[in-house]
Design a binder for these strands. Structure first.
Lengths: 75, 75
DNA sequence: CTAAAATGTCATATATAATTGACATTTAGG
DNA sequence: CCTAAATGTCAATTATATATGACATTTTAG
């Protein structure tokens, strides 16, 4: 269910955004609106295709009512 | 000692990087080398002048032996 | 006090995050 | 099934994170 580190597919980072978004019953579009970015940006973040800015990470954590570690920290 | 939110001075974010760096007895230059960025980038991050990428935040947390919440989360 | 190291900052250049629009594929409900 | 919503993805553009070099100021050690 969660993203796995896989250079061959261009995945560069693991995160729990999708799980938290679904738990909050939000679509990618709704989450995008809530944090003020485009839907594609949320899609790319969820699929680990690039590094979001710290500012976006913080807004995601706040909207999803969690914190940076829960969303983006592992180990 | 820690950065205060102050739009008038262009400060956009609060973080504890400087405190953790000093606790680790590293210079900005040494920390920059350790995480693979320019010294100026560390300086700007410490002074809250812009949003670092999540990737850089994670590397900073690892080198400073802490985590994302300790460095960048508040409240 | 003095010199070297560390830090703050500026200006220019480059890499990449994020936007916009569009379309194909997948998923969920009637 | 069928259809609409949701998602994945592509291409082109814009905004901004980061690099590089340089220099002034502040801090630290001798």
């Amino acid at each position: 269910m969660s993203i796995i580190y896989d250079i061959s597919k261009g995945v560069i980072a693991v995160n729990q955004v999708k799980d938290y978004r679904k738990a909050a019953k939000l679509t990618q579009f709704e989450l995008a609106q809530a944090v003020g970015v485009a839907r594609q940006t949320i899609n790319l973040v969820e699929n680990g295709k690039y590094n979001p800015s710290l500012d976006l990470c913080i807004r995601l954590a706040k909207v999803l009512q969690t914190d940076l570690n829960q969303l983006f920290w592992e180990e």
